[in-house]
Each structure stands twice: as C-alpha cells, then as structure tokens.
C-alpha cells in the first residue's frame, strides 16, 4: 500500500523522462531532481539528491548527453549548463528531464 502510494506520488509530470534513459545527443532541460529512488544506493537518497544538486543538476539547468562508456553504455558524460559531469546511469535515475524535440 505504502509502496503504491509512494509510486503514485513519485509519478513524474507527463512528457518527462529519466536522465538515465537518455542517449548521447539528447538534450533539454532538467525538470525535477527528486530523492524517490528506491534501489540500494550506498548513500541515502537524500544525500544523493544533495550531491546531484551540488554537481549542477538543478531544476532549470540545460543539459546534453555527450558520451557514454563502452560497456553497458555506462557511465555517461553530460554537459550541465557550462560544465561537464560524468555520472553512472543508476545515479542519473533521480534526475527527470524534459527532452528537446529533435
């Protein structure tokens, strides 16, 4: 029950996708950074949210996926505003983005 409730609350606005699903060349705007990810992280989700924010993944920032690794397309290198940041796809799951239509 709580699980369902949590998922319903976590449902993103329509049209948003997770940054972890993005491919190189995808660009757009970061819409929502939220600590609702339930997979087993080494740090708690709120800590992950703060770290994402500190690395520049903030609502309103523009982004573009630049590169991805050879194995499992992981990690990814992302331009966030005017910086480049590398992160793993699992850590990018908490970043919801609005993709620019190509």
């Amino acid at each position: 029950m709580h699980q369902l409730l949590a998922e319903a609350m976590a449902a993103p606005a329509p049209g948003l996708t997770r940054l972890s699903q993005a491919k190189p060349g995808d660009r757009g705007v970061i819409a929502d950074v939220r600590a609702d990810h339930t997979a087993g992280h080494g740090v708690d989700v709120h800590e992950l949210e703060r770290r994402l924010l500190e690395s520049g993944f903030v609502e309103g920032a523009t982004f573009e996926v630049l590169h991805q690794g050879l194995f499992g397309a992981d990690p990814i290198a992302v331009r966030v505003d005017d910086m480049r940041v590398a992160l793993r796809r699992r850590d990018a799951e908490d970043v919801w983005v609005q993709l620019e239509s190509k």
Partner: peptide, 13 residues
C-alpha cells in the same frame, strides 16, 4: 554487498 557509492565527477576543461 549491494551498497554502491554514487559516481559523480566533474570533467574539467
């Protein structure tokens, strides 16, 4: 087991 640290790193100019 399990616990994996986030990997977030600036790629400097």
């Amino acid at each position: 087991r399990g616990a994996v640290e986030p990997f977030l790193m600036e790629l400097p100019t």
